[in-house]
Amino acid sequence: MNLVIEAVESQPVARICGEPLLEIPQDLYIPPDALEVFLDTFQGPLDLLLYLIRKHNLNILDIPMAELTQQYMTYVEMMRVDQLELAAEYLLMTALLIEIKSRMLLPNPKTAVEEEHDPRAELVRRLLEYEQMKTAALRLNQLPQAERDFSIIHVWIEQKRTEQLPHINMDDLRSAWVAILTRAKVNRHHHIKREALSVRAYMSQVLRDLRGFEQVEFYDLFSPLATVAEVVVTFLAILELAKELLLEISQSPDSGMIYVRSINAA
């Protein structure tokens, strides 16, 4: 028996730099706030209770109140008297644990109307809700956060705005031109003569025809009695005006009709 006691007493209380320390030095100084850092690791009494339950593998749905209360009070007693502002909520939970423990020791006669009520039910509900919120907070904290896991960089890129020309289907424009050319061939004369036609003059004529109108159908710019040469020059005048951005050619998405409008008039 003496050998067992001597073996226990010879166990070191701590190790410093690998060297065993057999007894606590008499001049060891413990700061008054030495336990403050330990207590700050818990976010409140529910956090401390949940820590004790998980540490000792207790069933949260069937909490042994006597064991849990004793462990909880051991932690609370480590708080200093001058730390009441930190220990107030912990002391309140201590009173609640003692109340639950006392209610479980008292007999609970059941009547025909009242059902048996577990005094631990409210505490278990609060612990489960707190554990869910704590787990969700840990998952959110694992998500990448700006200025913690990565930095936000703002890059200024100068962009030159490009002018978007109106979209028109080239096949429809070609079909419209073929239809006008076919109509002009019907009015072809057999008199052979040289016609001096000016594209610039027809450009002015097209602009005059567009004056006062928001837009004009492509076919209306060609006279039904125009010859092939006049139709060709008129078409070249329209293309030249579109090239010089003096008019705009557009197409209706519903009917496919081609329209021409003067940009100055818009």
Rank of each mutant, 00 (worst) to 15 (best):
P224H: 07
S198I: 06
H154Q: 08
N187Q: 08
F218P: 13
L225Y: 14
G212R: 07
F235H: 06
A176N: 07
A237Q: 04
A184R: 05
W156Q: 09
I180K: 01
E214N: 07
L225D: 09
F213I: 00
I238W: 10
Q205K: 06
A201L: 14
M203P: 14
A176E: 12
I238P: 15
K243T: 03
P144T: 01
Q159Y: 08
E147D: 02
A179W: 08
E240S: 14
Q159T: 01
E230T: 05
V186Q: 15
L207G: 15
D220R: 01
L241A: 15
P224A: 09
E240Y: 09
K185T: 01
F150S: 08
D171L: 01
A184S: 08
E214P: 10
A196Q: 02
S198Y: 06
T234Y: 12
A242C: 08
D220W: 00
I168N: 12
L165S: 00
T234F: 10
E230N: 07
D172V: 00
W177P: 15
N169C: 05
M170Q: 02
S151W: 11
H190E: 07
D209E: 12
F213H: 00
R148F: 04
E217R: 12
A184M: 05
A196W: 09
D171N: 02
N169A: 03
Q205Y: 03
L236T: 03
I238C: 09
A237E: 14
Q215G: 13
Y202E: 06
T234R: 15
R188W: 11
